[in-house]
Simulated assay, not measured.
Amino acid sequence: MRHGESRPAGGGAKSILLVDDDELNLQVVARRLFQDGYYVATASSGPAALETMNRQRFDLVLLDLEMPGMDGLETLKRIRALSSRRETPVIMLSAHNQNSAIRSCLVHGAADYLVKPLVMPLVRARIERHLAAPAARTDEPGTLETERDVRILIVDDDDLSCRLLASQLKSRGYAPSTVTSGKAALERIGRDDLDLVLLDIGMPDVTGNDILRSIRADARTKKLPVIMVTASNDVPTMLSCVDEGADGYVTKPVDIAYLHACILSSLEAKRRGPRLDLD
């Protein structure tokens, strides 16, 4: 095998190209993906990634954004310029969550964006989504759906948190509305034409997970983007939300720049094609 390859026993494994200039990150993440049954090739720079992709076709690319020389964004642009690789899903990896950087990646064809340090069960869940049915791509970089007038329903039993988050989103051009109970949320979701829901998990009457399951069970709303907002940051809670169909997960206190990035990513995924369920 060439340097930087890990191939599971048996054929038919999905192939992933992992690109990161940090050798330790490469080894750790590649080993975890290999243990999950993926064929993994690695590259430590943008030029090396492009050379590898010219030799071999991959089902998905995990691409670090911050690399010396040719950074991840420039590498992404060049991948999208390769006619034979234009539809390969690319998930960007970054230790930073500046919304301008995330927007640039999405505009130039990234399928998703994950913030380091990586939580591997969530990385696997995102990979599985994109490998299940990659979103259709056009020949040109996409144009992000504008945030302006995007209708967002904020669901949280803490009225002060609702009003603060609504004010922050309104200042960014969104059109937020709020409810402070699960029952009211279900009524609004069933009645109103919404673009996205921000959903608190811990509510006394109907939990956020209950509402999420209801949204995904209804044919009218099953593709509605839902981002969970919660004070809990434990991995089992994150995974339960992902397994039940959440499009994102943001912990309190909310970093508005990161939330904005998650909203942009969810809206772009909706624009590109149908929501990709794990089951």
Rank of each mutant, 00 (worst) to 15 (best):
I201T: 11
V28F: 11
R216G: 00
I154G: 00
H96F: 14
R124S: 10
G173R: 08
Q27V: 08
L26H: 03
L93F: 04
D210L: 08
L194H: 04
L76R: 04
K77T: 07
L164P: 08
L118I: 14
I16M: 06
T221Y: 03
D36K: 12
E145S: 15
P176L: 09
C262Q: 12
L131P: 06
R148D: 09
S45E: 03
D200Q: 05
A111C: 08
D21V: 06
L118Q: 07
S100C: 05
Y113Q: 06
A13D: 03
Q168C: 13
L50N: 03
D22S: 09
P225C: 04
S94L: 08
S266D: 14
V123F: 10
M53Y: 02
L160P: 07
P176W: 07
S266V: 11
P89K: 01
A246V: 14
A184V: 11
L194M: 00
M92F: 10
R103D: 05
K252L: 10
T88R: 09
V226I: 07
R85D: 05
R213A: 13
E268L: 14
M67T: 00
G11S: 12
D149G: 01
A269S: 14
V254D: 01
A135W: 04
R7D: 11
R31C: 04
D193E: 09
M203K: 02
G10L: 08
S214G: 02
I189F: 01
R129N: 11
I91P: 00
M92T: 10
M203L: 03
A269N: 14
A9E: 15
L196V: 05
L93K: 00
L144F: 05
N97M: 09
P253Y: 07
R57M: 12
Q35D: 15
T207P: 01
S84A: 12
T221D: 02
R188E: 09
C262Y: 11
R126T: 10
I189R: 02
V90M: 03
R55F: 09
S45P: 00
V206N: 02
P68G: 04
C262D: 10
R216Y: 01
A135H: 12
S45H: 00
Q168S: 15
N97F: 15
S266F: 05
P117L: 12
D64H: 04
C262F: 06
I102N: 03
V61Q: 06
S265F: 01
D234A: 14
C241K: 13
D22E: 08
I152D: 09
L63G: 03
K223E: 12
A41W: 12
L131R: 11
L50P: 02
R272W: 03
V226H: 04
K183R: 14
D192A: 13
G109W: 05
I263Q: 11
H108E: 13
R151S: 13
I16G: 06
G190S: 08
L114G: 05
A269Q: 13
V235R: 04
